[in-house]
Design a protein around this nucleic acid. Sequence first.
DNA 1: GTCTATAGTTGGATAGAC
DNA 2: GTCTATCCAACTATAGAC
Lengths: 214, 214
Amino acid sequence: MKRLPIAERREQLVEAAIAVASREGIDAATVRAVAAEAGVSLGVVHYCFQDKDELLSAMAHEITRQNLSQSLLEMPVHGEPDVIIERALDLLWGGISATRGSQLLSYELTTYSMRHVEVRQVSVNQYLVSHEAASQFLETLARSASIAWTLPIETMARLVVMMTDGVVLAWLADGDDAAARENLRVFAEFLSGHARPVGADGVALPTRARDASA
Amino acid sequence: MKRLPIAERREQLVEAAIAVASREGIDAATVRAVAAEAGVSLGVVHYCFQDKDELLSAMAHEITRQNLSQSLLEMPVHGEPDVIIERALDLLWGGISATRGSQLLSYELTTYSMRHVEVRQVSVNQYLVSHEAASQFLETLARSASIAWTLPIETMARLVVMMTDGVVLAWLADGDDAAARENLRVFAEFLSGHARPVGADGVALPTRARDASA
DNA sequence: GTCTATAGTTGGATAGAC
DNA sequence: GTCTATCCAACTATAGAC
């Protein structure tokens, strides 16, 4: 546990910060607590990070990456659009419901960032990463299911982020897993309602399309 | 500014707490800052409230009431369902977008409550009040527009709360008023899609109903 | 690079004069 | 009921020995 290069030490401390903050909340993630969690002394943290805000920012960046990357990479192959959409949301929900502390921490970081100018970038980054992930999610979904979206991808992505936040917040509040899944089912219906079938090459199939213009 | 009955003093302090917390965030709402905001000395606050948590709980209860009561009381009269729904969401948004600090504070209180057992009731209360308000909103809407909802009122209410949270969070993050209104427009379409017309007396009109069973 | 020790703040809570 | 004064705990941050 001694004499690590500073880059590795920083990684270790960020992981420790994530651990303690996910478990006990953002207020509990003091420099002291992080040092204790990592098994180093207080001075080490201040040697690796200029101040607490820099540590918090690094932690936020990493947890945003972790929360979103895992759920969105695997996607079902081909099949009926409605089935694929519902299955994709199931996978998404699996990744979320298994990481309650991280999800809650993510919202704590959002509000914290909105109140403290020194870490303003955190919520901006969360916003950008979430929307990028949602866009990729929708595009992969469209390719897998041979569909196109009836609204611009940016609009759809914002709706996906919005609904995901809503579902997760409600679930954090009441812990009702069944209700969250029910919400996702309605969410899936909503997505299906804004999809129109296209050929495998991406060309619309006018005979089945609900709206040839759009 | 002297010798008020304790009930009035408590009200005054709660208002001061709301003011400072809405303006500067939950972390800035220290007992000292609240006392200064109210123009009283530190001891007065501890005389009126057993500890900080009791003050925070009182503040949370009051701001939850304020945030939700104002927007939901006025509702348009009769007319075409789609128009009424969109107009109702416009009114809702007006009440929200004018109170950015309060909205953000509400989410800060939610996450704070979820991490501190002593104020656990705060988020439970937020949940209950929000769902009750959403249910009333939907019922008033149904009466005004002479429609019925195709899903159980509890399910619909949870969806309304969920979507409202999502829209507000996204708006807090990027401040994009136009995008929020666009989201609400889609939200309105969603609501319209789950409404079916009934007679003014609440009886379904089978000739126009999309689904006579439900 | 890592440790201990400590300076310097801030904030919750209480005691006691008025 | 209200004020001032004070205690005590926890935290960020730095200095300096090793």
